[in-house]
Amino acid sequence: MKFIVQWSGLPTAENAVIERFMKTGGQVPEGVTLLGRWHAIGGLHGFAIVEADDIRSIAALALDWGDLLTMSVFPAMTDEDLGAALGKHQTTRRQQG
């Protein structure tokens, strides 16, 4: 399953975030595949798209940086997945109405 991971941090954490990122390369935990990561210019903000089969791996990702960054994680759907869900919803509504 794919997830959108957003993060933000206070300017006071900037040096610690830089140090950790340079040391670890921003590696994700075992069980998580990083599909892409983007960083805002001029602040500790950004987002990544990751994939994992086990929610515990996603929790590990959030915990790895939780002392320095506020993280939000959301399940993500492709256009195709959303289209299929919407089609099923429309069919169900028609059958009920």
Rank of each mutant, 00 (worst) to 15 (best):
A16P: 10
D53P: 07
G36V: 08
I4S: 13
I18L: 15
E14N: 09
R56C: 09
L82R: 11
D64A: 09
T12F: 04
G31S: 10
L69C: 02
D67H: 11
I49L: 14
A76D: 07
G83Y: 04
T91K: 12
L86V: 12
G43M: 07
K23N: 10
F21H: 08
F3Y: 15
W38T: 00
G66R: 04
R56M: 14
A13T: 10
R93T: 13
E30N: 12
K2H: 08
G46K: 00
P29W: 03
H45L: 09
T33P: 01
G97K: 02
F21R: 12
A84T: 11
R94E: 15
T91Y: 08
V73A: 07
A76E: 00
R37K: 13
G42C: 03
M22H: 12
L69F: 04
D81H: 11
N15K: 15
E14C: 05
G83Q: 08
I49A: 09
K2N: 12
L86S: 07
T78E: 04
D64W: 05
G9R: 00
G66D: 11
Q6N: 15
V5W: 04
A52M: 04
A62D: 01
T24H: 02
K2L: 10
P29L: 02
P11G: 05
G25H: 06
D54I: 02
Q95P: 00
A85W: 06
H39M: 12
Q27A: 15
W7V: 03
E80A: 14
T12I: 12
W65L: 05
L63D: 14
P29C: 06
F21N: 05
A76H: 06
I49R: 04
W65Y: 08
A16W: 08
